[in-house]
Write a protein that binds this DNA or RNA. Structure first.
Length: 105
DNA sequence: AATTTGACCATAA
DNA sequence: GTTATGGCCAAAT
C-alpha cells in the first residue's frame, strides 16, 4: 500500500466541507506528508481541468490568500468559486482562517 | 541516474 | 510589514 501521494492528497481535499478552506500545509499533514506542502500544490496543479470531484478551490496558502499561478487570471476563477460558497475575502483579498478555516484532525 | 522545478511553510533577521 | 533560507516530495527533463 502506497497509492500515489497525489491520490491521498486528493482524498483529503475532498473532505473539505463547502464554505470552508484549508491550507496546503494542513492538507499535507492530513495526507501523511507532513512538511511536504509543496507537493500538495503540485498535486493540485496536476489535476485535469475537468475534474470536479476535488474541490481544489478550497485549498489556499497559509497566509489566507490564493496562491499565484503561472497563468494569470486563474486566481480570479478560484475567488469566484469561493465567493459562490459563501467564503468572504477582506479588502486585501485575504480569508479569515479563524473563521473559514477547516477544523479537523 | 542526476538535476531541476513547483498552486508551500516555518523561522529568522 | 519585508526578504532570505532550508526543508519537504514527486514528476519532468
Amino acid at each position: 500500500m502506497n497509492p500515489s501521494s497525489y491520490r491521498r492528497i486528493w482524498k483529503v481535499v475532498r473532505r473539505i466541507p463547502k464554505g470552508r478552506v484549508a491550507t496546503y500545509g494542513q492538507i499535507a499533514r492530513l495526507a501523511g506528508l507532513g512538511g511536504a506542502a509543496r507537493l500538495v500544490g503540485y498535486a493540485l496543479h496536476a489535476l485535469p481541468d475537468d475534474e470536479r470531484t476535488v474541490p481544489w478551490q478550497r485549498v489556499i496558502n497559509a497566509q489566507g490568500r490564493i496562491s499565484p499561478r503561472g497563468f494569470p487570471g486563474a486566481e480570479e476563477v478560484q475567488r469566484r468559486l469561493l465567493l459562490r460558497e459563501g467564503v468572504r475575502f477582506d479588502r486585501r483579498a485575504r480569508i479569515d482562517l479563524a473563521r473559514y478555516g477547516w477544523k479537523e484532525r
